[in-house]
Design a binder for these strands. Structure first.
Lengths: 239, 239
DNA sequence: CGACTGTTTGATTCATATCAACGTGCGTGG
DNA sequence: CCACGCACGTTGATATGAATCAAACAGTCG
């Protein structure tokens, strides 16, 4: 909590990497820590955008809702990634913690000042905006044109697929911190359909679903890539 | 063609608005004009991104394709809007002229130099990136959660709905320069479904379709907004 | 140990795609 | 100037993928 930014585990993975070491002390003073339990709301679409958040640990979902309750997840944010910045002075998405989460909070004025003071930070954030735009376009392609099976296979390709340290083994472990219903809300499907598609892939021995249900073993990466057919994987941390 | 930027009809509506009048002469030297007939390709996804384009007149569609030919339109660009800039050094979308189109072309290095020289331009483009991100998220919500009817109604709200000068009349004219199949590719539907939804709205006397088929009269704006249900209109020039 | 939440599986329905035919406006060439 | 051909749009019949409805089945937390 009271720890200095110099000791921050995600400093080199977040936009704080652009803050020179000698400015870290001052930097630390600007940020506050906030913690959220699973399912807690971090910010709400349409409300005044007062803060920018950086994920220190845990995972957060960004979402857009329709008045009648339908919701669409437009992206996930993991350790090191930031959210809360948009073109408007109100938030354009809501955000909710998926797992227990610790966030760094910066006020908008402070962020603006930092952008002015640190050209590298400005550059970092501008690049990030463009990356997110590309990711959003990936999701548009996925939602508009892919079948349920392709959507799910793609999701596994993008969000799973991190070797657990050692890459030698043919099967790799996909960790899915989010629930089936969150996967569904991201892919524009229902929970049942997501479950069925996973079951089908498991049936074909392309994947194996762990008993903890949030871990998926990729048994046949080639076949999985084939199921994601289009070959065009959607970029990481879409949205 | 050879006209000076000072006489450009879209100067005040494009990012050139940030170029001081005294620099316009030099600015003119950097840009070249290119023209495209309907259906002609301006740039291709994945190819080296050498240029940035500003639409002078006409309309252009930006699209993403899957290897098997499925294509998704991720945005339209009209007079004054630019495209061709992304996080990568290759284009992230293809672009194709819808109507006969005239574009200003700038080389990437020149754009980079201009950004360096003109802080206002940089600011303009950064804001634009964020606007496009918001628009892309709007499209994600639409594609992921809306019904065919809602999609079409929303499309009319966003892309139509420009009073023909005089706002007094209850019915307004929606001009749709794009074909049914382009609307379909934008909404993630088929041509037939788009046609049926338009027919249904016409049946209910919410709209009336002109004989030229590219113009739609909005007879009952309130009912149209209702059909777009969610109320949350997707932002203009999505993507 | 029992309620609860999340996941899976099954039966059925429904919205939209697909397949097919027809209409219509428009440009082209006779 | 008219007739033909073609691209585009509409309309209809049918098929189907995914949603919905419903129920059983964990794993988890008091």
């Amino acid at each position: 909590m009271t720890s200095d930014c110099a000791a921050c585990p995600v400093r080199r993975d977040s936009f704080c990497q652009t803050v020179p070491a000698r400015d870290l002390k001052a930097h630390s003073k600007k940020r506050s820590f906030v913690e959220f339990k699973p399912r807690q709301t971090v910010m709400v679409e349409g409300e005044p955008a007062t803060s920018l958040f950086i994920v220190t640990c845990g995972i957060v979902k960004l979402l857009r809702s329709l008045p009648d309750g339908r919701t669409q997840i437009v992206g996930f944010r993991q350790a090191g990634e930031y959210f809360g910045l948009g073109e408007r002075d109100t938030y354009t998405t809501s955000a909710e913690a998926i797992s227990g989460t610790r966030l760094c909070r910066f006020s908008r004025p402070d962020v603006a000042a930092m952008r002015r003071a640190l050209p590298q930070l400005k550059k970092y954030m501008n690049r990030e905006s463009l990356r997110q735009l590309t990711a959003a376009q990936d999701q548009v392609l996925l939602l508009g044109q892919m079948t349920a099976r392709e959507k799910v296979a793609n999701f596994l390709m993008v969000y799973g697929y991190r070797a657990p340290g050692d890459t030698a083994r043919p099967q790799r472990l996909a960790k899915l911190p989010m629930s089936r219903s969150e996967i569904a809300d991201f892919l524009g499907l229902t929970v049942e359909t997501v479950s069925r598609m996973l079951a089908a892939l498991a049936n074909e021995e392309i994947i194996a679903i762990g008993q903890k249900t949030h871990s998926v073993h990729v048994l046949n990466p080639v076949a999985l890539a084939g199921a994601a057919r289009p070959g065009v994987a959607i970029a990481r941390h879409a949205g």
